[in-house]
């Protein structure tokens, strides 16, 4: 990367643009991809908390279901993470 930075200083080639695009794409992929799961998990936690406040005796079951739901919601975030890793290291 140091050589690449030096190359940027001397002159920009096509490969450099592709490299920059790769990093930008990985960042965008992770950043935008994290919005959905974040909102979804927050809503799950909020409603689970609502339920727990209303019925404290249901806490165990609510907690379990909430974690399960959040794990499934997180899938999309994990997919975007994988895409970002593929963009960074494989492409």
């Amino acid at each position: 990367m140091l050589q690449e930075a030096q190359a940027v200083a001397s002159g920009i080639s096509g490969a450099d643009i592709a490299l920059a695009a790769k990093y930008i794409a990985a960042g965008l992929c992770m950043g935008i991809g994290a919005i959905g799961p974040a909102i979804g998990e927050g809503m799950a936690a909020a409603h689970a908390l609502d339920g727990m406040a209303r019925q404290p005796e249901m806490q165990g079951a609510l907690m379990r279901t909430m974690v399960l739901g959040q794990a499934i919601t997180e899938s999309t975030g994990i997919y975007s993470l994988l895409i970002a890793i593929v963009l960074l290291f494989v492409v």
Binding site: A71, E74, S75, I78, Y79, L81, L82, I85
Partner: peptide, 13 residues
């Protein structure tokens, strides 16, 4: 697939 990727992705992240 999602089962495996979820664990792998979380730990790797």
């Amino acid at each position: 697939m999602s089962h495996a990727f979820r664990l792998f992705g979380n730990v790797l992240a």
